[in-house]
Design a protein around this nucleic acid. Structure first.
Lengths: 138, 138
DNA sequence: TATAATGTCTCTAGTCACTAGAGGTTCAAG
DNA sequence: CTTGAACCTCTAGTGACTAGAGACATTATA
C-alpha cells in the first residue's frame, strides 16, 4: 500500500493534483487508514500512471474520463477511444499549424529590431501597431 | 466617437473583452456619455487594435502592458520590446517542439487502432496504460 | 411623442487544470 | 513519548476571458 506521497513520487504527479483527480472522478475514492489518510494499491498506481500519460499527451480530463470508462468495460467497442485519440491528434496538428504561422511572423518582427534604438523607431512596436506590416494572416 | 459595440465590430474583440482590458489597465478608462456609456475615439481604436494584434501573436497581458508603456514613452530604449518579442518567439518554438513530439506519438497510437475491435484489445488504451510502448519521451 | 428593440451598464460566477496557503491531525522514526 | 514530516480539508488564486442576471440608455420606427 502506498501513501499519497509515495504514489506522488512514483508517478511524478503532485499530491494536490492526485486529490484533484479524485475529486474529478478520475480516481476512485481511496481507502483510508483509521486516521483518515489515503492508501493506494497497485490499481491506484496503474490508474494514475494512465492518467499521467494521457495528460502528458494533452488529453483533457473529460477525454480521460471517457477513456477510463472504456477501459473499465473491456467488452465495449473501442470506436470511441479511436475517436478521442484522433480528435486529440487533430487538435495538436491545428495548434502546430497556428504556431508555425506565429513563429514566422515573430521571427520576422523580432529580427527587425536589434534593441539598440529608441521606442519611437522600434520595429516590434510598429509591427504590432500596423497589421499591414505582417506577411501572413493570423 | 464609437460605442463599445462599434469598437467591438471594428476590432473583432468582444464587448466584455474590451471591458476586461480596461479593467486590466491595457485600455485607458473611456470617456462616458451622460448616461454612463463608454465612448471611444481614434486613440482607443488604435490601442485596441494593437492589443488585439499582440494577443493574436500570443503575447500575454503582462507583456502587452509593458509594450504599451514603451509605446507611450517613445524616447526610451526599445531593448525591452526586443526582449519581450524574442521571449515570445522562444516560447512559441518551445511549444512547437513539444507538439511535434506529441504529434508523432499520437499519430502512431491512433494508427494502431482502427476502432473496429473491442476495448480490451485497443491499442489506444494499451498505449496509454504502458508508457513502454511509446517511441519518444514526453 | 410613444414605444419597442437593441445596446449598454455593473456585478457575480464559471471555465480549465491545477497551485498555494491556512490551520489542524496523523504517522513513523528515534 | 516526542519530534518532525506527511497528511487532512477548505478556501482562494491563476490567465484570459465568457455567460448570465437585472437594470438603465439609446436609437429606430409608428
Amino acid at each position: 500500500m502506498y501513501s499519497i506521497g509515495q504514489l506522488s513520487k512514483r508517478t511524478n504527479v503532485k499530491v494536490p493534483t492526485i486529490r484533484y483527480y479524485e475529486e474529478m472522478g478520475l480516481l476512485d475514492e481511496a481507502e483510508r487508514t483509521a486516521g483518515n489518510q489515503r492508501r493506494y494499491g497497485k490499481d491506484g498506481l496503474e490508474r494514475l500512471s494512465f492518467i499521467r500519460h494521457a495528460r502528458d499527451l494533452g488529453f483533457s480530463i473529460d477525454a480521460i474520463s471517457a477513456l477510463i470508462e472504456l477501459q473499465q468495460n473491456p467488452d465495449r467497442s473501442c470506436d470511441a477511444a479511436q475517436e478521442i485519440a484522433s480528435a486529440q491528434l487533430a487538435d495538436v496538428r491545428a495548434k502546430m499549424k497556428r504556431l508555425r504561422t506565429l513563429e514566422k511572423e515573430l521571427a520576422r518582427i523580432s529580427k527587425g529590431c536589434d534593441g539598440d534604438g529608441v521606442a519611437e523607431d522600434c520595429y516590434v512596436l510598429a509591427s504590432l501597431s500596423d497589421h499591414g506590416l505582417c506577411e501572413h494572416e493570423h
